[in-house]
Design a protein around this nucleic acid. Structure first.
Length: 204
DNA sequence: GTGTGGATTATCT
DNA sequence: GATAATCCACACC
């Protein structure tokens, strides 16, 4: 009966360096409970943001403002920000408190709650594109700024589960998307995705 | 199939 | 007042 709990990823998983967490989050199941309905999807694309040294990270240089405050939380905390005035992007904080690193969840393959998800993405024809990008995921799973600070390891609203039968898949890397301004950090291989998966935002 | 530009707002300078 | 870890529609090939 506590079987469902034992599958949930805990603090030990998230309190590690973001590159490791970003890589290992692939194939895990992201779960969102919305008004008693369960939405879920397999994580197929992530990006690591390495904190104070990373010119592409909001926390670069130790920048600590109202917006970035949640990046300084403990591993397993949600960090949500508004991007281009339209999209709400979902991040999971990594490392320990005061180390402002995080993983951006860029795409998932929806597996549960498809009816509801399609309703949140009315213009989307193809199921492959329901959450094939961070902004799309934000809409599909109704990510809100109010979710900032939620603890994934204890919340009933948001959490991540380990899959029981672990399917094998190949992981590919690339530079991160939309961070051309970040100089040498723009080229680092900090984006991870499941090779050949149709729900990835690019390079299918 | 590829390229371009408009949308839209919390947050910071 | 400017900026931003994006998406979509529409033009044109």
């Amino acid at each position: 009966m506590t079987d469902t709990n034992s599958k949930r990823l805990d603090k030990r998983f998230f309190r590690r360096e973001p590159t490791l967490v970003a890589r290992e989050l692939l194939g895990k199941r992201l779960v969102r409970n919305i008004n008693g309905v369960r939405l879920a999807g397999l994580i197929v694309e992530t990006e690591a943001y390495l904190g104070v040294l990373d010119k592409a990270a909001h926390s670069y240089g130790g920048r600590r403002t109202q917006r970035t405050e949640f990046m300084y939380g403990d591993g397993g905390t949600l960090y949500v920000f508004l991007n281009y005035g339209i999209h709400r992007l979902l991040n999971i904080v990594t490392d320990t408190t005061d180390v402002p690193t995080a993983v951006l969840i860029r795409a998932v393959e929806p597996t549960e709650g498809l009816e509801l998800i399609r309703g949140f993405r009315p213009k989307t024809r193809n199921d492959h594109d329901l959450a094939s990008g961070p902004g799309k995921l934000g809409e599909a799973f109704q990510v809100q700024l109010a979710h900032n600070g939620i603890d994934l390891t204890h919340s009933d609203e948001w959490f991540v589960e380990r899959m029981k039968p672990r399917r094998s898949f190949k992981i590919e890397t690339s530079s991160r998307i939309g961070v051309e301004y970040a100089e040498e950090w723009a080229h680092k291989q900090l984006r991870f995705y499941v090779s050949g998966n149709q729900h990835v935002s690019r390079g299918r």
